[in-house]
Design a protein around this nucleic acid. Structure first.
Lengths: 174, 174
DNA sequence: AATAAATAGTTGACTTGGTCAAGTTTTGCG
DNA sequence: CGCAAAACTTGACCAAGTCAACTATTTATT
């Protein structure tokens, strides 16, 4: 018989309410950047993934990429999968990005198959701007904290994430 | 000169990503209830507020309510204000609720001015159902935790909320 | 009590983020 | 090659949310 978790549930719900509001606040600045929340997320994903060396087996990797275990940037489907988005929607977003010159597709026929996405310089700049805006918000949110409190908060968050099943204890933060 | 918070910001962002996903998961069940997220929130607000004795001065309280310091349930504008919603949208939601018999307006001319909202029995039932669904989710989320871990999580969350400026240290949890 | 000023509520028209279903293209492989 | 599967695209569509203009209700003023 499972233990009584009603107190925890209550606290969780309370935290939820609080954090939802917080996220809303944070998102606000993001939205003011001219990107949709989803677009922003796609941009992040695009940026965070370009040029990794972590080819995921089973995915749509060509012989070259597979042979060398290299990921030449995410395919649209990767993003859709990761972010739980409708492929159709992703297509449109990517199209929009491409239209304003934020992304480009590797179509070099000699080197690889097409369809791998990467940020252009402009795209990287946009991402950086977005990131720094987000950073500014988060910094302001925690500016009143002392060093110890800051450290405590970091620990707490990691711990909470872990307890909530978000990360196997060992996973790197970031 | 403010201390370097980059590590904290990174961790915060990481937690953010995680928790956004979590909320999304939780919201899912809520959405499957036939209510919009916003509708659900309105319902919660409606339920949490009915029959308080905390008339807010400056609000649209009639002479009776003001005289007796009684709040006969929120007005539409209260909800709109609290939840940061467009009045027009609130109107529609309330209308919908009213149409399916979840809410009623006190229009007893003898007793009070109209326009005060309250849940019908059915409304209360719907709210209860919603709440228990949410509870179930949260419970399942934490079912693997031992008693100590559960207690720890409660503490952690409260502490995090406090550190993030969510609650003046003394505020009770719940 | 009459009326002006303010606030609350309502309406319709509209925008837009996002979904669905039905194609078309690419890719992987025998 | 040629076929099956997966990825991508398209257009039609939907519903949540916004805007602006209007009506009704309350409160204040005299």
């Amino acid at each position: 018989m499972p233990a009584d978790r009603s107190a925890l549930v209550r606290d969780l719900r309370c935290f939820n309410r609080f954090y939802t509001g917080l996220i809303g606040l944070l998102d606000e600045t993001l939205t003011h950047s001219g990107f949709t929340l989803t677009e922003a997320r796609v941009l992040f994903e695009l940026g965070g993934r370009t040029g990794r060396i972590t080819a995921t087996p089973g995915r749509k990797a060509g012989f070259l990429a597979r042979a060398f275990q290299i990921d030449f940037g995410p395919a649209a489907s990767d993003i859709a999968g990761e972010l739980q988005l409708d492929p159709a929607y992703v297509t449109r977003i990517l199209r929009k990005f491409s239209a304003v010159g934020l992304t480009e597709m590797r179509t070099d026929p000699g080197a690889l198959r097409g369809r791998m996405l990467s940020l252009t310089i402009r795209g990287q700049a946009a991402l950086a701007a977005l990131q720094s805006a987000a950073d500014r918000d988060l910094t302001r949110l925690t500016v009143d904290l002392g060093d110890e409190e800051a450290a405590e908060l970091s620990d707490i968050l990691a711990r909470a994430r872990h307890l909530l099943g978000g990360a196997p204890a060992s996973e790197r933060r970031g």
